[in-house]
C-alpha cells in the first residue's frame, strides 16, 4: 500500500523527497501507479499555494510547478502557451495535470515539456537559488532531480513561436510526435532558432540539424526543404502501438515544414 505524506510547504516536501520519496503532483500519472499497486511505498505532496502561482506579465513569465493546463488556458496573457496546453489530454486531465509533472512524463506524454524546451525555459528547484536550463532537468529526469518549484519561460516575440502535435484521435489522442519551434527573425533572417521534438527519442530533445538548417537563413523554399530533409537526422524514434520508428522518421519533416509555413503566413 502507498502512503502519501502531505506537507504544508515546498521546502518540507523537498526535504522529505531528499530522503528518497517520490513526488506526486496532479497525480494523472502517479495515481495510475498507485491504482496498479506499482507506486513507490511513500509519496510526497504539498498544498503550498506558491506552487499554484502564476506570473503572466513581463518578458519572463513564471509558472509554479503545480500550475495546471487549465490554469494556463484561463490566463489571456499566456496566449502563446494556449495551443500547447489545449493539446494535453481531455478537459479533466487539463484540470488536473501540472506543468511540473509534464517535465517527467514519459513517452508518449510530455507535450508541454517539448514547448518549454524550444522556448528556452529555466527550472527553479526547491531549496536552490538560481534556475537550471530545462534541458538539464529533462536530461537528468531519470535520476531524482529534486522538487521543481517553478518554471521561468521567456516570452517569445509575437509570431516567433509555433507548436504542433500529431495524433491519430482528435481532439485528445496522445502524440505520435510533437514539434515546437522558436524562430525569431531579425530583418527577415532567422536568429537564435530553437527546435524541440517529442516522440522522436526517449524524451523531448532539440534537433541540432534543423536548428543549423534554419539559423541565419531566410524562411524561403530552399530553407524549408533543407529543414524538412534533415528533420530526422541522427534520431532514433521509438516504435509503439501508435507508429513505427520508420513512420515517425518519414513524417517528422513534413509536419515541421507545415508548421514553419504556418508560422510564416501568420
Amino acid at each position: 500500500m502507498t502512503e502519501v505524506q502531505t506537507y504544508p510547504t515546498i521546502d518540507e516536501a523537498a526535504r522529505a523527497m531528499a530522503r528518497g520519496a517520490a513526488y506526486m503532483g496532479g497525480g494523472t500519472i502517479v495515481m495510475r501507479e498507485v491504482n496498479a499497486g506499482t507506486a513507490a511505498p511513500v509519496l510526497v505532496r504539498t498544498d503550498d499555494p506558491t506552487l499554484r502561482q502564476l506570473r503572466a506579465q513581463g518578458d519572463t513569465v513564471s509558472l509554479g510547478a503545480g500550475v495546471t493546463m487549465a490554469q494556463i488556458l484561463a490566463e489571456p496573457q499566456l496566449d502563446f502557451l494556449h495551443p500547447v496546453a489545449r493539446r494535453v489530454g481531455g478537459p479533466q486531465v487539463r484540470n488536473m495535470g501540472t506543468v511540473g509533472g509534464n517535465l517527467f512524463a514519459a513517452h508518449p506524454y510530455g507535450d508541454f515539456a517539448v514547448a518549454l524546451l524550444a522556448l528556452g525555459a529555466r527550472v527553479q528547484l526547491a531549496g536552490t537559488s538560481g534556475a537550471r536550463p530545462v534541458e538539464d532537468v529533462l536530461r537528468d529526469r531519470a535520476r531524482q532531480v529534486g522538487l521543481v518549484a517553478a518554471i521561468e519561460v521567456p516570452r517569445p516575440r509575437h509570431g516567433s513561436f509555433g507548436f504542433t502535435k500529431v495524433s491519430r484521435v482528435k481532439p485528445k489522442g496522445v502524440s505520435i510526435l510533437s514539434i515546437a519551434v522558436l524562430a525569431p527573425q531579425t530583418g527577415g533572417t532567422l536568429r537564435g532558432v530553437r527546435v524541440a521534438l517529442g516522440g522522436m527519442g526517449s524524451g523531448p530533445l532539440r534537433s541540432a540539424a534543423v536548428e543549423r538548417a534554419l539559423d541565419g537563413q531566410r524562411l524561403d523554399r530552399t530553407t524549408l526543404e533543407k529543414a524538412q530533409s534533415v528533420a530526422s537526422d541522427g534520431l532514433q524514434p521509438p516504435t509503439d502501438a501508435l507508429a513505427s520508428a520508420w513512420y515517425r522518421s518519414e513524417v517528422v519533416g513534413v509536419h515541421l515544414r507545415r508548421l514553419l509555413q504556418s508560422m510564416e503566413s501568420s
Binding site: 502519501v4 506526486m24 494523472t28 495515481m31 495510475r32 489530454g89 479533466q92 486531465v93
Partner: peptide, 24 residues
C-alpha cells in the same frame, strides 16, 4: 479503466471536472 482514459468516473471538485480514479 482506473487509468484516466475513459471518463466514466468524472466528478466535479470545486466546479472543475476531474477523474475520480486519479484523485487521491
Amino acid at each position: 479503466c482506473g487509468q484516466g482514459a475513459c471518463g466514466a468516473c468524472t466528478v466535479t471538485i470545486d466546479g472543475q471536472t476531474q477523474l475520480a480514479c486519479l484523485v487521491l
